Amino acid sequence: MYKIPSFKSHYSASDVEAVMKVIDRAMFWADGPEIDEFERNMAGYTGISHALAFNSGTSALLAGLLAIDVKGREVICPSFTFIASANTIELAGGTPVFVDCEATTFGLDVAAVAQAITPNTKAVMTIDYGGCVSRDILALRALCDAHGLLLIEDAAQSFGARLDGVHAGAHSDFAIFSFCQNKVITALGEGGGLVTRHQSIYEKAKYLRSHGRVDQPGKKHFETSQDNEYLFPGYNFRMPSVNAAFASSQLANIASNLALRQTVAGYYRARLDSLPMVRQPAAPERFSHCFQMYTVVLPSHACREQLKEHLLAAGVLVRGYFEPLHLKPYFRAKNKDLVLPVAEALGQTVLTLPMYPTLSEESVNYICDLIVAFASQSGHLEMVQK
């Protein structure tokens, strides 16, 4: 066990109470009214008209890609991201086309995307990394519109982030969120969401989520004695009722959760501003950061690795999010000559520090004391401002 973990899930008594109400009912632990309630709450909070709950962000992304039919088509996507971003494209029958990211928020670089568009391109998928909407999202929207392409936001890490006061996902044709245990809000361990303004994407993803099944008017599957019709083969990607109840309760308290994350980020900023060797996360002007992660950038791979081992040895769990996907064996075999300088540099130098709402100032000081000591003892003394 680490003295300070990379994350801790945050919950309140109201979250537990919401779950117990479902359990005590002893009915509709699946497909209960909590699903519809959470979807209404998600749509209301994000300001995006259609919302669907899934059992994971990965399921949501796969359903969305299947809904827009990328089979046999190319989807331009980041390499500096979690493996699900590319895996789901392949599982939906498409081809991931990796392009480089920008070095500010780590989303797709619009200039790199423009160069990668071909007649076979169907969509562009960017990532809203670590708690901030992609810097180039508006330019990507304009580029996609000009070329008749769909824009997808993998906003798994950025529920609660905004641009000009507008929630993550609002500028894309569809976006997905993760409600896994380490995210800003969680659906009791695992969960995901899909949001879209397009009725057609919403309807197709909704059927895909549950075997392609058409429910009886006004009745759920477990409420009727009649058999259902099935439009096409689908999956069981449904979120259980207890998870939806927990997620709705978490969403009701998201303002305090986000405020606590901002406080923790403030602790880090105050302590690490004196270390030029550490580039801290910061939202561009007009953007708000929800700090799902607190990822810093170090000056070199050697420095990152040494600091990582220094922190791990002191009981602080850190890791580098992410290693570029085009360098992973499966995708490397398909992209042997691909070089993405920004993504590769980030993969060598990023380090994600612990971040969660209940992380104390004392714990942040402990982490930062270790970083300062490392800088002083490892040849980076000149990088510590006196």
Rank of each mutant, 00 (worst) to 15 (best):
S225D: 13
T295I: 05
V113H: 00
V342L: 06
A333C: 13
G169S: 10
H310W: 14
F331I: 12
L346C: 13
E223Q: 11
K334D: 09
V133Y: 00
F291V: 00
T121R: 02
A343Q: 15
A43H: 08
Q226S: 14
Q292I: 04
I371D: 01
L258K: 06
V296D: 03
V296N: 03
L272Y: 01
T58L: 01
E229M: 10
G94L: 01
Q226E: 15
P96R: 03
T104H: 07
Q181P: 03
A313Q: 15
G212H: 03
Y202K: 00
G57F: 01
Y45K: 11
P284Q: 04
A265C: 02
K308D: 12
H147G: 00
A86H: 08
G379D: 09
S210Q: 12
K219L: 13
D15Q: 08
M293I: 05
R261E: 03
H289G: 09
V97T: 08
L251T: 06
S378Y: 07
A161V: 06
L370V: 03
L91P: 02
N55G: 10
K183F: 08
F106P: 06
S56C: 01
A313L: 12
F7D: 04
T186F: 04
R209M: 14
R261N: 04
L66Q: 11
V214L: 12
F177S: 05
A84S: 09
T186M: 04
G47H: 07
I201Y: 08
Y202A: 02
T358S: 15
A170D: 12
E305I: 07
A116K: 09
K220S: 12
Q226P: 07
Q226C: 13
Q250L: 04
M125S: 12
A43F: 08
G218Y: 05
N257Y: 11
N55S: 10
H167F: 15
